[in-house]
Design a protein around this nucleic acid. Structure first.
Length: 576
RNA sequence: CGGUGAGUAGCGCAGCCUGGUAGCGCACCUGCCUUGGGAGCAGGGGGUCGCUGGUUCGAUUCCAGUCUCACCGACCA
């Protein structure tokens, strides 16, 4: 490709509305341009990178026996009504009507469509296992699109759906996809973790997220420093604590705590540590059901764990009115003793081991001390509802400690079970001629987001440092002085020879000063730069600069193409 | 959806408080010059100041509304 005939509109200055590095660099490198909030044009260079990654995904999907197809973006409402998600999905689902007033949506995901296809075509256990995938544009009307391709509204996604005869067969399909995902992200040279995750609005029984580690990541994850345990913090299990409090039970006593509304204030005022206190939170469902949650004072609630335990669709902090109605007290002095309404009280498992604790007394400026569960109040269950923290013991191996990271979710695999096949009646006949429900799995990769995450993880002050497997070009040939016929002839020859070797090369033949070319080449992340200048040429040498290490090789005209080919091939090698 | 801030040339910004029809840097065009890390000189083109309405002789500037965009938040006693 001739640079002078290509289209790479680079920008010197950082656009003011781009917050994260990948967004800034993708704009500056001329990879993307914004059309509307969360909606982007993929410029030629950006598209090349995206296609490179898509092809890696395609290769690994095909190797894992997934079959490529393509489903429409526009989907009829009926299917979504049938699955129940038309009502459940909320405003993220972009809905509209056609000229006949029939309702449609832009597909945010394709479980409904694929399940509809499968239920029409799959009749027998002999036809499974099956796994279909597509690489396609999705639309989700995000509350707050941000960070460029990281959280767009329109974005490219690879989604796959597996169909199996039973749960254990589905587990095998899941494992195949999990392993394929590991290979995909490894091939891109990314530093990532596969973590246990919540299933969210997609539903299903269990799932893993693939998280690229980056400080700008929107998710928090933990991983054990000793074993393989890793989880999204939304899902991460809390280790069992041994009881901190000991000694016989002291008599319950009400003490004044004027103006002391926070745990820190109360603990300091009563001269105890926060881990001797229990904090009380009140949550409400959309329909107004209330629940009280008890946690050790220095712990944080994990709303998702509580929500999942309760089986609610939505969990909200109770309003002051709701709190007053059930406790008779304002926020700051809440506790489980002497409630005005009979609401369920759920305590974190850690609370089970605590004795003689400090609790709100449900009266202004008063707390209890020496409260004991079972004697002074009852709870309906001890459940893991706390948010894990860095340094917690690993819930699996027990010996390791949890480390905390920020991560960008680039892939997510789910065991769906029969959630969609049941509501959409996707069944088959087993060997005994009996009708059975199909078991499903679904598997997604954010294509653009992965490219952005790779940039987030691979850049310096000069721009992007693309890993070779997803770089828009493998290398470039820079002619230092285009007016020098000898330089141009040599550069051109190297360019042709590289192309003949099947290398993707950008020939920077622009009539620009060398500094401009170097800056642009660095900015757009070309992994290997071959510089042809008159000085080196006099000695029959050209220079190869490695973007990632800054290493400079001086090579003869004869050797340069094979040397470059070797470097590239080495980077593209991947284990089968 | 709530909060904050911003919309002036392709990009980054100034001007607005104190009204008189717009300026800087980069980019772009022409010429000269220059060629190993975003050169220099000279000349030039480009803006209904987001939109609508109001006040005024006169509005980019003041007022009201509206749209768009970004960031923060929707996380806790």
């Amino acid at each position: 490709m001739l640079y002078s005939r290509y289209f790479i509109p680079t920008i010197k200055e950082t656009p003011s509305d781009a917050e994260v590095v990948s967004h800034q660099l993708m704009l500056r490198a001329g990879m993307i341009r914004k059309l509307a909030s969360g909606i982007y044009n993929y410029l030629p260079l950006g598209l090349r990178s995206i296609r490179k990654f898509e092809n890696i995904v395609r290769e690994e999907m095909n190797k894992a026996d997934a079959i490529e197809m393509l489903m429409p973006s526009v989907q009829p409402a009926e299917l979504w009504q049938e699955s129940g998600r038309w009502a459940f999905y909320g405003k993220e689902l972009l809905r509209f009507k056609d000229r006949k007033e029939a309702e449609f949506c832009m597909g945010p995901t394709h479980e409904e469509v694929i399940t509809d296809m499968v239920r029409r075509e799959i009749k027998s256990y002999r036809q499974m296992p099956l796994n279909f995938y597509q690489i396609q544009t999705k639309f989700r009307d995000e509350i707050r699109p941000r960070f460029g391709l990281m959280r767009g509204r329109e974005f490219i996604m690879k989604d796959a759906y597996s169909f199996d005869v039973d749960s254990s067969a589905a587990d095998l399909s899941y494992e195949k996809m999990y392993n394929a995902y590991m290979r995909i992200f490894e091939r891109c040279g990314l530093n990532f973790r596969a973590v246990e995750a919540d299933t969210g609005s997609i539903g299903g029984s269990s799932s893993h997220e693939f998280m690229v580690l980056a400080d700008s990541g929107e998710d928090a994850i933990v991983s054990c420093d000793a074993c393989r345990y890793a989880a999204n913090i939304e899902k991460a299990e809390s280790p069992l604590f041994t009881a901190i409090c000991s000694g016989g039970s002291e008599p319950l006593q009400k003490v004044p705590t004027p103006e002391m509304k926070t745990i820190a204030d109360v603990a300091a005022f009563l001269n105890v540590t926060a881990d001797k206190t229990v904090k009380t939170l009140v949550y409400a469902s959309e329909t107004g059901e209330l629940v009280m949650a008890l946690l050790r004072g220095d712990h944080e609630l994990n709303e998702l764990k509580l929500k999942n335990h309760l089986g609610w669709d939505e969990i909200l902090m109770a309003t002051e009115e709701q709190i007053f109605a059930c406790t008779g007290s304002p926020v700051g002095f809440l506790g489980p003793i002497g409630l005005k309404q009979d609401i369920p009280v759920i305590a974190d498992r850690v609370v089970q081991g605590m004795t003689n604790v400090v609790l709100g007394a449900n009266e202004i400026d008063l707390h209890y001390i020496n409260a004991n569960c079972g004697r002074d109040f009852e709870v309906s269950g001890f459940i893991d509802i706390r948010t894990v923290e860095a340094g917690d013991a690993c819930p699996r191996c027990g010996s390791g400690k949890l480390e905390m990271w920020r991560g960008i979710e680039v892939g997510h695999v789910f065991k769906l079970g029969t959630k969609y096949s049941k509501s959409l009646s996707a069944t088959y006949l087993d060997a005994n001629g009996r009708e059975q429900i199909i078991f499903m799995g679904c598997y997604g990769i954010g294509i653009g987001r992965t490219v952005a995450a790779a940039i987030e993880q691979n850049h310096d002050e000069n721009g992007i440092i693309f890993p070779i497997p997803i770089a828009p070009f493998h290398c470039s040939v820079v002619a230092v002085n285009t007016k020098d016929a000898g330089v141009m002839a040599a550069a051109e020859e190297i360019y042709f020879r590289l192309e003949k070797l099947g290398i993707e090369v950008l020939f920077d033949d622009r009539d620009e000063r060398p500094g401009v070319k170097f800056k642009d080449n660095d900015l757009i992340g070309i992994p290997l730069r071959i510089v042809v200048g008159s000085k080196g040429l006099a000695e029959g040498k050209v220079e190869v600069k490695v973007r990632s290490t800054g290493e400079v090789l001086s090579l003869s005209l004869n050797d340069v193409t094979t040397a470059v080919k070797q470097l590239i091939d080495a980077a593209l090698v991947h284990t089968e």
